[in-house]
Deep mutational scan, measured.
Amino acid sequence: MTEYKLVVVGAGGVGKSALTIQLIQNHFVDEYDPTIEDSYRKQVVIDGETCLLDILDTAGQEEYSAMRDQYMRTGEGFLCVFAINNTKSFEDIHHYREQIKRVKDSEDVPMVLVGNKCDLPSRTVDTKQAQDLARSYGIPFIETSAKTRQGVDDAFYTLVREIRKHKEKMSKDGKKKKKKSKTKCVIM
C-alpha cells in the first residue's frame, strides 16, 4: 500500500485542523484551538488504489514558523489553505509557496490551493482571484467548507493525484537520464 505524506499549511484560523478532522473523523470542530502540530493517518481508496494518507496539520501562528522547514522537508505534497473571508490569509499563500519551493529546492512541488469556509456569506476573496492565482502557479484550486464537508475529500484526493503525477514524471525523467548515460565512448 502506497503511503502519501501530505502537509496542510496556511495562516492561523483558516480551518486547516477543521478540514483535516472532517476528512479523518467526519465531524466539524467549530471551536478554535490553535494547533502546534498534529499528525493523522487514514486509509482510503483513490482511483481504485488503496493508500495510506499521513497528514500533518501544522501551526499557522507566526511564533511556530521555525518548525516549518522541518515538516516541509518531509512532506510530499501540500494543501495551501486560505479562508475566503480573510484576504490576508490569501496573500500569505505566496509566502508559504515560496518557502516550500526553497526548502524542497524545487520549482515543481505537488500543491493544491484550497479556499476554505465557502459556506460563509462574508467572502472577501473572489473565486476568480483564487483561480487566477492557482493557474499562475500551475496547481489545482478547490473551494471547501469544513463545516458542510463540501470539497473536503476532493481537496485531499486531488493532492494525492498531483503527487502521483509528480512521481510518474520524475521516474520518466530518471529513465531518460539513465538511457543517456548508457551511451559509451570508444577510443581507438
Rank of each mutant, 00 (worst) to 15 (best):
L52W: 04
L23Q: 15
D47T: 05
T50Q: 11
L53Q: 08
C51F: 12
T50M: 08
G12Y: 04
E62F: 05
I55C: 14
K42W: 03
T2S: 12
N26F: 03
E63Q: 05
D54W: 01
D33S: 03
K5R: 13
R41D: 01
T58V: 13
Y4E: 05
L52E: 08
L52D: 06
G13T: 07
I46P: 13
V9N: 03
G13V: 04
E31W: 07
H27F: 13
G48A: 07
V7N: 05
E3F: 04
L23N: 14
V8P: 00
E31F: 08
V29M: 08
G13A: 04
Y4A: 12
E62C: 08
L6R: 01
I21T: 13
E49F: 04
D38T: 02
S17Q: 00
D30W: 06
Y40R: 02
E49T: 12
Q61C: 06
I46A: 10
E37Q: 06
D47C: 04
G10Q: 00
L23D: 06
V44F: 07
T58H: 09
A59T: 15
Y32W: 03
I55R: 01
L56Q: 15
D47K: 06
D33H: 04
V7S: 06
T35C: 15
V8W: 01
I46C: 09
C51P: 08
V44S: 09
L56K: 09
Y64G: 13
Q22E: 11
D33G: 14
K16H: 15
L23Y: 10
L23T: 14
Y32R: 02
Q43K: 14
E31T: 10
H27A: 14
R41E: 01
V8Y: 02
T20M: 08
E63V: 03
L53D: 00
T2D: 13
Q61Y: 08
Y4R: 15
D30M: 09
D30F: 08
S17M: 00
L56R: 09
G48Q: 10
G60W: 11
E31M: 10
C51M: 11
V45C: 13
V7Y: 04
I24T: 10
L52T: 12
D47G: 09
G60F: 08
V45T: 13
A11I: 11
I21W: 15
E63P: 08
K16D: 12
I46R: 08
E62K: 06
V44P: 08
I36A: 05
V29N: 06
A11N: 06
E49W: 04
K42H: 06
G48T: 07
V14G: 09
I55G: 11
D30H: 09
L56M: 14
K42I: 06
G10P: 01
G10E: 00
Y40H: 07
Y32F: 14
V44G: 11
A18Q: 04
C51Q: 07
D38Q: 01
G60V: 15
E37M: 14
E3C: 09
I46N: 08
D33Q: 04
V8I: 12
G60P: 14
C51R: 05
Q25N: 06
L6D: 00
L23V: 12
T20A: 06
D47P: 04
V14M: 12
R41N: 02
D30S: 10
L53H: 09
I46S: 10
N26R: 10
E49M: 06
V45Q: 12
G60C: 15
A18M: 06
N26A: 13
D33Y: 10
D33E: 09
T58L: 07
T50V: 11
L56F: 11
Y4D: 05
D30L: 09
K42P: 02
T50R: 11
E63H: 06
I46Q: 09
N26L: 04
V7K: 03
E49P: 07
L19N: 14
L56W: 12
Y64P: 13
K16G: 15
Y32G: 06
K16S: 15
